[in-house]
């Protein structure tokens, strides 16, 4: 019998090792898997490479993981926020590496890893400093940049409902990076607010098929509160 449900976030992350690449879903606070980030902090794992759209807000969650100096490198599109002071301080002190990736390239590089694509040419970033050092090609007269997939050892995502096979639904814009990150990691851990009987999810509404998910943890629903930032440009 297949049963991917685990009793706790701690049990789901017990095998995270130093140096792991950990993808964390969420855009602002929508879809951010708070319980899993806290459990990641509790593992004590260091030297992590973290993939998330942003670089932490305030003093909790990802910001706390950063403040504890457990992250060697951030791969993200928008680290600068009104309340990203922990990342800002580490970055200015040269204590963290930043790979800045345009948001759509970030999503597509993650998707490419999940889809077994070895690289792809994208027009995004062509002619800019973010394409520096990368192979470029003119295709039908338009400039493209070769981008590589981003693989994860773990993906930590927040979904809405799931079943013991790992099938997932999401809630509104909390879906964001969840489906692509689930595809791209060796071990995908999803929190859901409800674990339902097999067959209870409408098969037409399953967004992430269970084969992309290895572990499922039920967490209480807590209303997502305001967070994140007002983007500058």
């Amino acid at each position: 019998m297949i049963d991917k449900t685990l009793a706790s976030a701690a049990a789901a992350l017990a095998d995270v090792r130093d140096g792991a690449t950990v993808m964390i879903g969420g855009f602002g606070t929508a879809g951010l898997p708070h319980e899993l980030i806290d459990a990641l902090i509790d593992t004590g794992a260091r030297d992590l490479v973290v993939v998330n759209n942003n670089a932490g807000n305030g003093d909790t969650g990802l910001a706390r993981l950063l403040a504890l100096k457990r992250v060697r490198k951030m791969i993200c599109s928008f680290p600068r926020q009104a309340d990203s002071h922990h990342f800002d301080a580490l970055y200015r002190a040269g204590q963290i590496e930043l790979e800045l990736v345009p948001q759509g390239n970030l999503a597509e590089r993650i998707r490419a890893a999940g889809a077994g694509i070895g690289g792809f040419f994208t027009p995004t970033g062509y002619g800019t400093t973010l394409a520096k050092g990368k192979e470029t090609r003119l295709i039908d007269g338009r400039g493209f940049v070769l981008e590589s997939p981003i693989h994860g050892d773990f993906a930590l995502i927040r979904a809405e409902k799931g079943d013991r096979w790992g099938n997932l639904t999401y809630r509104m814009t909390a879906r964001n990076f969840g489906p692509v990150m689930a595809m791209a990691a060796k071990v995908t851990v999803a929190t859901v607010h409800e674990v339902v009987e097999l067959g209870a999810l409408d098969p037409e509404s399953v967004v992430t098929p269970g084969l992309f998910v290895q572990r499922l943890v039920r967490v209480d629903r807590v209303a997502t509160t305001a967070g994140g930032f007002k983007q500058a440009a």
């Binding site: 602002g28 969840g178 305001a226 994140g228």
Partner: peptide, 28 residues
């Protein structure tokens, strides 16, 4: 306000009839 339903500026928004959601790779 429902902070699972936000725009790119992280501000709460609403969904009109006919509107829908999708993941980031589809969005871009």
């Amino acid at each position: 306000e429902d902070y699972d339903l936000i725009n790119a500026g992280k501000q709460p928004v609403t969904l009109l009839p006919g509107g829908c959601f999708f993941h980031h790779a589809d969005s871009f």
